Computed example of a mutant assay.
Amino acid sequence: MPTLHGETVKARAEHAGDKTHAQIARRIGLAESTVSRLLAGTTAPSLATLLAIKGAYGIPLDEMVREDAPEPAASAAEAAR
């Protein structure tokens, strides 16, 4: 599942003068709790959210989204079952 690259967004937000989750939330029109979950990577962003962040901070979509690390391969004992 793709997640938001929180460090990129935080850096651009800070450059724009938004240093808190509340300030970021106001600028992009989301709840502060949603911004917190997005920046922590626990919630996947919708396309509308990505476009709002892009509009607010000028971050290209490909710099904002990252793919989660692949799940670890099953151990040899599990694979033998």
Results as ranks from 00 to 15, higher is better:
Met1Tyr: 02
Pro2Ala: 10
Pro2Asp: 12
Pro2Val: 09
Leu4Val: 12
Leu4Gly: 08
His5Trp: 11
His5Asn: 15
His5Ile: 00
Gly6Glu: 14
Gly6Ile: 13
Gly6His: 10
Glu7Asn: 13
Glu7Phe: 02
Thr8Gln: 13
Val9Glu: 02
Lys10Val: 06
Lys10Phe: 00
Ala11Gly: 00
Arg12Cys: 06
Arg12Val: 01
Arg12Thr: 01
Ala13Lys: 02
Glu14Trp: 01
Gly17Ala: 11
Asp18Cys: 11
Asp18Thr: 03
Asp18Gln: 02
Lys19Ser: 12
His21Gly: 04
His21Ile: 00
Ala22Glu: 13
Gln23His: 06
Ile24Ala: 01
Ala25Lys: 02
Ala25His: 01
Arg27Trp: 03
Arg27Pro: 03
Arg27His: 12
Arg27Ile: 03
Ile28His: 01
Ile28Tyr: 05
Gly29Ala: 01
Gly29Asn: 04
Ala31Met: 07
Val35Phe: 05
Val35Arg: 06
Arg37Asp: 15
Leu38Asn: 05
Leu38Asp: 05
Leu39Ser: 03
Gly41Glu: 07
Gly41Asn: 10
Thr42Tyr: 06
Thr43Tyr: 13
Ala44Met: 04
Ala44Pro: 00
Ser46Met: 04
Ser46Gly: 09
Ser46Thr: 15
Leu47Met: 11
Leu47Asp: 05
Ala48Thr: 14
Ala48Trp: 02
Thr49Val: 14
Thr49Arg: 01
Leu50His: 04
Leu50Ser: 09
Leu51Val: 12
Leu51Asp: 13
Ala52Gln: 13
Ala52Ile: 02
Lys54Ala: 13
Gly55Val: 04
Gly55Glu: 12
Ala56His: 08
Ala56Gly: 03
Tyr57Asp: 10
Tyr57Asn: 11
Gly58Phe: 12
Ile59Met: 08
Leu61Phe: 06
Glu63Arg: 15
Met64Glu: 06
Met64Cys: 06
Val65Ala: 14
Arg66Ser: 14
Glu67Pro: 00
Asp68Asn: 12
Asp68Tyr: 00
Asp68Ser: 09
Asp68Cys: 07
Ala69Phe: 10
Glu71Gly: 04
Ala73Lys: 11
Ala74Gly: 10
Ser75Tyr: 06
Ala76Asn: 04
Ala77Gln: 08
Ala77Phe: 11
Glu78Tyr: 08
Ala79Trp: 08
Ala79Asp: 02
Ala80Asn: 03
Arg81Asp: 09
